[in-house]
Deep mutational scan, measured.
Amino acid sequence: MQRVNMIMAESPGLITICLLGYLLSAECTVFLDHENANKILNRPKRYNSGKLEEFVQGNLERECMEEKCSFEEAREVFENTERTTEFWKQYVDGDQCESNPCLNGGSCKDDINSYECWCPFGFEGKNCELDVTCNIKNGRCEQFCKNSADNKVVCSCTEGYRLAENQKSCEPAVPFPCGRVSVSQTSKLTRAETVFPDVDYVNSTEAETILDNITQSTQSFNDFTRVVGGEDAKPGQFPWQVVLNGKVDAFCGGSIVNEKWIVTAAHCVETGVKITVVAGEHNIEETEHTEQKRNVIRIIPHHNYNAAINKYNHDIALLELDEPLVLNSYVTPICIADKEYTNIFLKFGSGYVSGWGRVFHKGRSALVLQYLRVPLVDRATCLRSTKFTIYNNMFCAGFHEGGRDSCQGDSGGPHVTEVEGTSFLTGIISWGEECAMKGKYGIYTKVSRYVNWIKEKTKLT
């Protein structure tokens, strides 16, 4: 034993070699072989497995989906700052455009905790909710729209109204504003409101030439003092309507412009014939205590009207009353817009006519005020429907199939267009061939041609 100890002390290297040989010859039971080890760690190889990531292109799944990435790591994937920024906006807080917040056709661009709407022409605001041009839906104005110097929408209202708090709607500024039905039992019968379409306001006024200088022999019209197929109006439903009495009662109609003036057809009036105007009328054979009678003290036909040349060209006249009318729910003026808007309103496509005229061709006159909704007829169809001249200051309205029309005794009465609950004068009943005849239409004086003249002559002093 002493000898062994001496050998170990003198030859430590020998001992180490012996131990190493023993270990190498022993069977290893701690580690699995290569094949079995792979069965336990069965993990798919990654895209760049075996390579240094710093030297390969980034992978979106590896960089940002398996674990949260930084902007720089995302930049490695896209290799483009702009594309990385677009991805980053949604990656950080989701897609803010998912709810489609942009209105009126706006395009949404996502941002971090926010979004941006790219608005089409005519709109602005956070969600493109603000109209900035009158060309689109009248700028959301209830009545009139004008573009300011910086191309912003400025709404306005006709006389007797003021802008509401929203700067879009119009509200009454006087007790009985024009064009409004205020009798409670008839307010439910107000005709369907007309909503502004998209309009090209630059070209809204037709490029028409008034044929002022045409000389033409007097034409022989049949029954051209021209509501057939209409309905009984309720008291106060058309408070701007008046009836004219002269040699015979209810020979023509008219509309209240203001307390002192009536507008009617020029062919209705004769110099030297006494005319009485009755406002607030409903049943011409009954006294309903809503009527107001006034005498006409002055007749002003349009300066281009000449019955000797043509009885229905420039067929418009103004009547001055001896005493002002007292405005109330049964006696209310009709609204008159400017030339541009009167023309736009007419193009809405349908209007209402009213009167006490004959209820059928050569038949009896109506006792109760009649009204009828009539569609506008395109000019080409209008011209083809008659052998008589249709001037540019006239328009056609009615039904091709016949059966409904204005008729004798309705002449001078109103053709009105309702705009968001307020009625505007767009025409004056003038003439036609018979009444409600198939293929024939009622012919009306186009008020847009005469609004400046009306307003100039009827100013209240």
Rank of each mutant, 00 (worst) to 15 (best):
Asn48Gly: 04
Glu35Val: 07
Cys335Met: 00
Thr445Pro: 00
Ile40His: 14
Thr290Leu: 06
Val56Gly: 12
Cys119Arg: 03
Cys252Asn: 00
Thr381Cys: 12
Ile309Phe: 08
Gln408Val: 05
Val56Ala: 14
Val331Arg: 01
Asp410Ile: 13
Val278Ser: 07
Val183Leu: 08
Cys407Asp: 03
Lys339Leu: 11
Cys102Arg: 01
Asp223Gln: 10
Phe238Gln: 04
Arg46Ile: 09
Met8Asp: 05
Glu159Arg: 04
Ser365Leu: 03
Gln216Glu: 10
Thr271Ile: 10
Gln185His: 08
Tyr22Asp: 00
Asn151Leu: 06
Thr332Pro: 01
Cys178His: 00
Met65Ala: 12
Thr133Ile: 12
Glu418Val: 06
Leu52Arg: 12
Ser220Glu: 04
Thr445Glu: 02
Ile454Cys: 00
Asp315Trp: 01
Cys335Asn: 00
Phe55Lys: 10
Ile454Phe: 01
Asp150Tyr: 08
Glu456Trp: 03
Cys252Gly: 00
Phe55Gln: 13
Glu159Thr: 07
Glu285Asn: 09
Glu142Val: 04
Gly280Asn: 02
Gly357Tyr: 15
Cys102Thr: 01
Val353Glu: 02
Lys455Tyr: 04
Cys382Asp: 02
Cys145Tyr: 01
Phe55Thr: 15
His267Cys: 02
Gly272Glu: 07
Glu116Trp: 12
His267Glu: 02
His302Cys: 02
Gly230Arg: 09
Cys335Asp: 00
Ile443Ser: 04
Glu79Thr: 13
Met65Tyr: 12
Leu20Asn: 01
Gly402Ile: 14
Asp410Ser: 07
Val331Cys: 06
Trp118Ala: 12
Phe345Ala: 08
Gly398His: 04
Ile309Asp: 13
Arg162His: 07
Leu325Ile: 02
Tyr330Leu: 08
Ile336Ser: 01
Trp356Leu: 13
Met394Trp: 12
Leu24Lys: 02
Gly402Tyr: 13
Ser430Asp: 02
Glu288Arg: 09
Val269Ala: 11
Glu73Gly: 08
Met394Ile: 14
Leu19Val: 03
Ile214Phe: 04
Thr290Pro: 06
Asn328Leu: 00
Pro239Tyr: 00
Gly349Leu: 06
Thr81Asp: 11
Gly355Val: 12
Gln167Asn: 06
Glu116Ser: 14
Val263Tyr: 00
Ser169His: 03
Tyr161Leu: 02
Arg294Lys: 02
Glu320Tyr: 02
Val195Glu: 10
Tyr352Leu: 13
Tyr391Leu: 11
Thr458His: 01
Asn42Pro: 10
Asp131Gln: 07
Pro414Arg: 02
Lys459Leu: 06
Arg294His: 01
Glu259Asp: 07
Leu369Val: 06
Val202Lys: 11
Asn36Gln: 08
Arg384Val: 13
Val174Arg: 09
Cys170Asp: 01
Ile262Gly: 01
Lys45Trp: 09
Pro239Ala: 03
His303Cys: 04
Gly432Cys: 14
Ser25Met: 13
Asp232Asn: 12
Cys407Phe: 14
Lys51Ile: 04
Leu321Gly: 00
Asp223Trp: 07
Cys155Arg: 00
Asp110Ala: 08
Gly230Tyr: 11
Gly432Asp: 06
Val174Ile: 06
Ile344Ala: 14
Asp33Thr: 06
His314Tyr: 07
Glu401Tyr: 05
Gly272Arg: 10
Ile15Pro: 03
Gly403Val: 07
Val199Ser: 08
Lys39Ala: 08
Cys119Met: 01
His361Trp: 05
Tyr201Leu: 04
Met394Thr: 14
Asn59Gly: 04
Gly236Arg: 07
Gln219Ser: 03
Lys146Asp: 09
Leu346Gly: 02
Trp453Gly: 01
Asn80Leu: 03
Val92Ser: 12
Phe224Gln: 02
Asp93Ala: 13
Ser184His: 06
Asp93Glu: 04
Gly58Pro: 15
Tyr201Trp: 06
Lys45His: 11
Ile7Val: 11
Glu82Val: 15
Lys274Tyr: 06
Lys168Asp: 03
Gly94Ala: 12
His302Phe: 06
Ser187Phe: 09
Val419Tyr: 15
Lys234Asp: 12
Pro301Ser: 06
Pro239Met: 01
Asn135Ser: 11
Glu340Gly: 14
Gly58His: 13
Ala192Glu: 12
Gln143Phe: 02
Thr426Tyr: 01
Ala307Leu: 08
Ala233Trp: 08
Asn310Val: 02
Tyr341Cys: 04
Glu320Met: 05
Leu41Arg: 15
Asp95Cys: 10
Leu319Tyr: 01
Ile454Arg: 01
Val359Met: 15
Ile336Asp: 01
Pro175Ala: 10
Val153His: 10
Pro333Leu: 00
Ser365Asn: 11
Glu159Asp: 10
Gln241Lys: 06
Lys311Asn: 07
Gly351Asn: 13
Gly272Thr: 09
Leu52Ile: 10
Gln219Tyr: 06
Ala265Ser: 11
Asn147Tyr: 10
His314Trp: 11
Asp198Cys: 14
Arg404Cys: 14
Ile299Ala: 04
Ile214Asn: 03
Ala279Val: 03
Val331Pro: 00
Tyr444Phe: 11
Asn59Lys: 08
Ile40Ala: 15
Glu67Arg: 14
Ser187Lys: 04
Thr342Leu: 05
Thr426Val: 00
Ile299Arg: 05
Lys293Pro: 03
Gly229Trp: 07
Glu98Met: 08
Leu19Met: 08
Val277Phe: 00
Arg449Ser: 15
Val4Phe: 10
Phe221Thr: 08
Ser99Thr: 14
Glu124Cys: 07
Ile297His: 05
Gly363Val: 06
Asn393Cys: 04
Cys382Ile: 03
Asn113Ile: 12
Ser350Arg: 14
Ser329Met: 05
His303Phe: 10
Val4Cys: 08
Leu383His: 14
Lys446Gly: 15
Arg379Phe: 14
Asn59Glu: 09
Ile275Asp: 01
Ala380Trp: 13
Arg3Gln: 05
Glu129Cys: 06
Ser430Glu: 04
Thr381Trp: 10
Glu67Met: 10
Asn113Lys: 14
Asn113Val: 12
Ser411Gln: 08
Gly427Arg: 00
Asn283Gln: 10
Asn310Phe: 04
Leu321Gln: 00
Thr271Met: 08
Val359Leu: 11
Asn113Trp: 04
Arg294Ala: 02
Thr417Asn: 11
Glu10Tyr: 03
Trp453Asp: 00
Thr16Val: 07
Glu340Gln: 13
Ile15Glu: 01
Thr386Asn: 13
Lys126Val: 05
Cys170Thr: 00
Thr218Leu: 10
Glu79Gln: 15
Cys141Met: 00
Glu231Lys: 07
Gly421Gln: 14
Phe71Arg: 15
Ser148Glu: 09
Gly402Pro: 06
Thr389His: 12
Ile17Cys: 04
Lys45Cys: 08
Lys274Ser: 05
Val273Met: 12
Cys170Glu: 01
His314Leu: 01
Ala207Gly: 08
Glu320Arg: 01
Asp249Ser: 07
Gln96Phe: 13
Lys188Ile: 12
Val416Gln: 10
Asp111Glu: 04
Cys268Thr: 01
Val257Ser: 00
Asn135Thr: 13
Ala37Thr: 15
Asn245Phe: 04
Leu41Tyr: 13
Glu340Ser: 05
Ser385Gly: 13
Ile112His: 15
Gly125Ala: 04
Gln2His: 03
Gln370Phe: 02
Leu211Cys: 12
Tyr352Glu: 02
Trp118Phe: 11
Ser385Tyr: 13
Glu73Lys: 05
Cys141Pro: 00
Leu32Asn: 10
Leu103Trp: 03
Glu66Thr: 06
Cys157Asn: 00
Asn328Tyr: 00
Thr186Gly: 10
Val374Pro: 09
Asn203Trp: 07
Thr287Leu: 13
Arg449Ala: 15
Asp131Met: 09
Leu425Val: 01
His267Ser: 11
Gly122Cys: 02
Cys396Met: 03
Leu367Pro: 13
Val368Ala: 13
Gly280Gln: 02
Leu369Arg: 11
Ala149Leu: 06
Ile309Arg: 12
Thr461Gly: 05
Ser182Ile: 08
Thr215His: 03
Gly230Thr: 07
Thr209Ala: 05
Leu244Glu: 00
Lys45Pro: 07
Cys18Ala: 07
Asn295Gln: 03
Leu163His: 01
Asn113Asp: 14
Cys69Gln: 08
Ile443Tyr: 13
Gly349Ala: 11
Lys440Val: 04
Cys128Arg: 03
Asn5Leu: 12
Glu340Asp: 13
Pro44Trp: 06
Cys396Ile: 02
Tyr47Ser: 12
Asn80Asp: 10
Ser99Tyr: 10
Pro301Met: 10
Lys109Val: 08
Arg364Leu: 09
Val419Ala: 07
Leu189Arg: 08
Ser448Lys: 02
Glu86Leu: 09
Asn343Tyr: 03
Thr458Gln: 02
Ile17Val: 08
Ala397Cys: 03
Asn151Lys: 08
Asn38Phe: 05
Gly280Ile: 02
Val92Ala: 11
Thr271Pro: 05
